[in-house]
Write a protein that binds this DNA or RNA. Sequence first.
DNA 1: GGCCGGGGATGACAGCTGTCACGGGCAGGT
DNA 2: ACCTGCCCGTGACAGCTGTCATCCCCGGCC
Lengths: 202, 202
Amino acid sequence: MVIRLLLADDQVLVRDALAALLDLESDLSVVATVGRGDEVVGAARAHAPDVCLLDLEMPGLDGVEATSAVRAALPGTRVLIVTTFGRPGYLRRALDAGAAGFVVKDIPAAELVEAVRRVHAGLRVVDPTLATESLLGGTSPLTERETEVLRRALEGAPVARIAASLHLSPGTVRNHLSSAIGKTGTTTRVEAARTAQDRGWL
Amino acid sequence: MVIRLLLADDQVLVRDALAALLDLESDLSVVATVGRGDEVVGAARAHAPDVCLLDLEMPGLDGVEATSAVRAALPGTRVLIVTTFGRPGYLRRALDAGAAGFVVKDIPAAELVEAVRRVHAGLRVVDPTLATESLLGGTSPLTERETEVLRRALEGAPVARIAASLHLSPGTVRNHLSSAIGKTGTTTRVEAARTAQDRGWL
DNA sequence: GGCCGGGGATGACAGCTGTCACGGGCAGGT
DNA sequence: ACCTGCCCGTGACAGCTGTCATCCCCGGCC
């Protein structure tokens, strides 16, 4: 009785390497690998995996959206997020989307294998260091508009361009930015955008 | 006659996975793995690898610095950069530092294995798509000071803080920023910093 | 010597930013 | 009906930014 796995990661080499590693285990078998979030559900339908290992950063659909899609299309399939970034906010959103586990790419291979087995057994697997940070970081205090504005401020765009791209008045954009700067405890919009991103609020 | 490999990557899982993948090849053998740039030379001395596979982003020393260190300490050892980011400037600096090859983590496993064999055989291996972009991007037109100032502008710090951290007058910092903005064809310092980073000028 | 590029600095000026006060509209609670 | 929170907008104001002109010093080069 082997556990059937689907692997999704945008970097081909990482995908191949993880496949090689997981296939070394006698009770695991990689039955499909994809490089885009929007290919996950199709591949899952075709190959009926027990567990999907998803990266968060993928073209098409991101990992969280792909998780929702898998849970909706194939409720019996379990999802384990395997990601580079340990942003606390991602953890919360991934679990909300129905992920059964969340680990960063900074764990030894043996722990990943163990995580896969636990997830398949119906247990939740959460990176312990992130779990505490998640509670510490808390939910985003930003409103929807503030989030939207901050996201476009990340690259340093001037207010005029942000306002135009959102069809808003420049004054309104500045108000949202000012509010976001206050909530993040920073002094410029770029700093606000970066710290918000670090906390997973974007 | 097997090719002895040293693997350096800050993410344990990626390291383990690549090791598993490369060990599948009968003519390759991973003899050491490290997670920090400043551990590369020590491990290389201890295990005498033929080829070092280095990530660019590592704590301690980055991949380019580690390459220089390996070339200086063990001239016979060849270095292959294996990295996530295909920034053209990185390629140039890596080759200048003495790397024999440069590939991104977006290639199939078979190509990585082939790259290792070519590097060991004394050939240069360069990701072809990056090679053209590298010539297109060209050398950085930024002066040393401009580079320094831009690097600190990346996170959105105000001029006053940049000036203080470099022991410069605020006016001078603004002059450097203005010049850098002109050279990058942007309108704000954060945009200038980001495009400069994209082109590997930082 | 004369010339040029880089670094450092000052002063001035238009325009952009961040803050605040204030107004209005719209949903969700009590 | 009332209050609260979010959204959108305006106007004003101090302060920051980006640009430009103009200095100075220094080292390299013809």
